[in-house]
């Protein structure tokens, strides 16, 4: 499993995390090589978003154990914004609205902070506009949305496309897409999928978090993992997604180690 040829982009070992006093991730292992797309599937509440947020650096999630290496370096001690500048991108399951700030303005500020971190010059505003318009076309996002406040009054599908647009502009090394497919109709799903596929690159890795197999017919993953009660309980090739679709998540629980009741924290009472 350990890459002897290449160094993995992401290496998660025995990760434990809690939120609101409750342990959600309970010893999670995951290794991703550059160029790969991994799907993470699992029922609602299994900890998919928690994993995504822990990787992105949400301060509300407390890591209680394990380790995460990103491109060979410890990730957990790095601030949220530094992670983004180092190339981690999270497409939110529920994108946030930012009143008063246009997507174009915000995205240019983002790109510039990343460029600055790399010691590169800020992007020229005109060049930026050309770039963002080109990418917006790829995800078939109406250009007028670029000048509207971020996600404010956007439909569910428009918000998700905005996430993909941001990913395309910021060009991360590790992209985590948290249920980007949920709430999309089939046409929107295809657009989003083609945007993601266009981003596939030997230098880039992606984690596609999804609840349904549907997305994975358009974004064909290299690996599929099943998350249950805060652990990866099954991993396999793309066929695993189909198998899950057929048999349901209950099937994965059978051969997973019996978890403690999900509501009780994993600490001895004292």
């Amino acid at each position: 499993m350990t890459g002897s040829k290449k160094k993995p982009i992401l290496e998660v070992r025995g990760l434990r995390a809690r939120v609101g006093g409750k342990e959600i991730l309970r010893g999670l292992d995951l290794t991703i090589q550059a160029g790969e797309v991994h799907a993470i599937m699992g029922p609602n509440g299994s900890g998919k978003s928690t994993l995504a947020n822990v990787l992105a650096g949400h301060e509300g999630y407390e890591v209680t154990g394990g380790q995460v290496m990103y491109r060979g370096k410890d990730l957990l001690s790095v601030s949220t914004e530094e992670r983004a500048r180092e190339g981690i991108f999270l497409a939110f399951q529920y994108p946030v609205e930012i009143p008063g700030i246009s997507t174009a303005y915000f995205l240019r500020a983002s790109l510039n902070s990343i460029l600055k971190h790399r010691g590169e010059e800020e992007i020229d505003p005109i060049d930026f506009l050309t770039l963002v318009k080109k990418k917006a076309k790829l995800v078939q996002m109406d250009q007028s949305l670029l000048n509207r406040p971020v996600n404010e009054g956007f439909s569910g599908g428009e918000k998700k496309r905005n996430e993909i647009l941001q990913m395309m502009v910021l060009e991360p090394r590790l992209a985590i897409l948290d249920e980007t497919d949920s709430g999309l109709d089939i046409d929107a799903l295809k657009i989003v999928a083609s945007g993601v596929n266009a981003m596939r690159d030997p230098e880039r890795a992606m984690i596609v978090v999804t609840h349904y197999q549907r997305l994975l017919t358009y974004i064909v993953p290299d690996r599929v993992h099943v998350l249950s009660h805060g652990r990866i309980v099954k991993s396999g090739g793309k066929e695993l997604a189909l198998e899950l679709e057929e048999k349901g998540y209950a099937w994965t629980e059978i051969d997973s180690p019996a978890p403690a009741a999900p509501t009780s924290p994993d600490v001895p009472a004292s």
């Binding site: 992105a56 650096g57 949400h58 301060e59 509300g60 601030s79 949220t80 914004e81 992670r83 983004a84 500048r85 991108f89 999270l90 939110f92 994108p95 946030v96 609205e97 930012i98 700030i101 915000f106 995205l107 500020a109 983002s110 790109l111 902070s113 990343i114 971190h117 941001q166 910021l170």
Partner: peptide
């Protein structure tokens, strides 16, 4: 919202400002 902006590379001060 602050978290969202920070995941896009903006530091806490700039996120607050925006």
């Amino acid at each position: 919202s602050l978290y969202y902006l920070r995941t896009r590379g903006l530091g806490p001060a700039e996120a607050r400002t925006l």
